[in-house]
Design a protein around this nucleic acid. Structure first.
Lengths: 144, 144
DNA sequence: CGTTAATCTATCAGTTCCATAGACTTTCAG
DNA sequence: CTGAAAGTCTATGGAACTGATAGATTAACG
């Protein structure tokens, strides 16, 4: 399961994607529209800013806005940033690899083999899911 | 990520699958071969027993053994048993469904849509991964 | 200069995870 | 029928993480 932090981050980013190039948006506004605790959201947006996904402007008329294009931000990177590894086992993780204590040989571990497949499928879907596509999909769904 | 509990469970079950119909196997033996803390493994096997996946025999010559056929136990059910939901979001979980606070309409949530796809792919792979298949795969890999 | 809004630091209760300890019960061998 | 072997059960504990809140600080605008 994703942490709430990650879920909040995704929702906030989609919200900001809808306002792309329309100037800064208040934390307050996002928090209210998406039912996210404001102070918690604050910390999340700060982290996204440090990762160069968002920019912010202080003071009156300030707020947060997307730094990258909605077509350049995908769920894979957001999830890695918020929750860390996407893989189900350390021994199949690309970014957080760790050797497995239980199996003799990694090369012929049938368990690893399964989770390698899961990882690949998952990364494929998440990597292809950009803010852009999520927005468009939402719009086309709404008209049905 | 899977919990260690779940990872240990899977490894133990594959180990027991290799000994299917060869009589009870000591906790001690599994613990040593798979580098799993014995006391922890104890609790795990007990749980698998309660779920009717394993049987046990007490006393001298006792131990654990598979109750179901290796072809009838898959990773999906083991993971559900050990860690709970497999889905990444409560709103796409089959067994632990919960409504989402962030989106207006579940039907046209672009985010939900992505994780629905991830869930389906994942369940597909895990549901098809029986102890049986994992064993066979391991053997065919070893000969290469 | 005052107001607005982001930034930073600190804290905190609750939960989960991983693991260990010890007493109890059943089974088998001799 | 007794002792050893092995699973069963209950309890405990520290460490880490999760989700959230509070308050002081800094920057920008008008």
């Amino acid at each position: 399961m994703l942490s709430k932090k990650c879920k909040y981050a995704i929702h906030a980013l989609v919200y900001l994607a809808e306002r792309y190039q329309e100037g800064p948006v208040h934390i307050q506004e996002i928090a209210e529209k998406k039912n996210i605790p404001k102070k918690f959201l604050e910390a999340i947006l700060l982290e996204l800013r440090k990762a160069k996904i968002l920019h912010s402007k202080k003071g009156k008329g300030g707020g947060y806005y997307l730094h990258q294009k909605p077509s350049e931000v995908n769920l894979m990177e957001i999830m890695r940033l918020m929750d860390g590894p996407i893989a189900q086992l350390p021994c199949v993780s690309l970014n957080y690899y760790e050797r497995c204590e239980e199996c003799r040989s990694e090369k012929n571990c049938g368990i690893r083999d399964v989770f390698l497949k899961v990882r690949d499928e998952t990364l494929d879907i998440l990597g292809g899911s950009t803010l852009d596509k999520i927005m468009k999909r939402e719009r086309s769904m709404a008209t049905k």
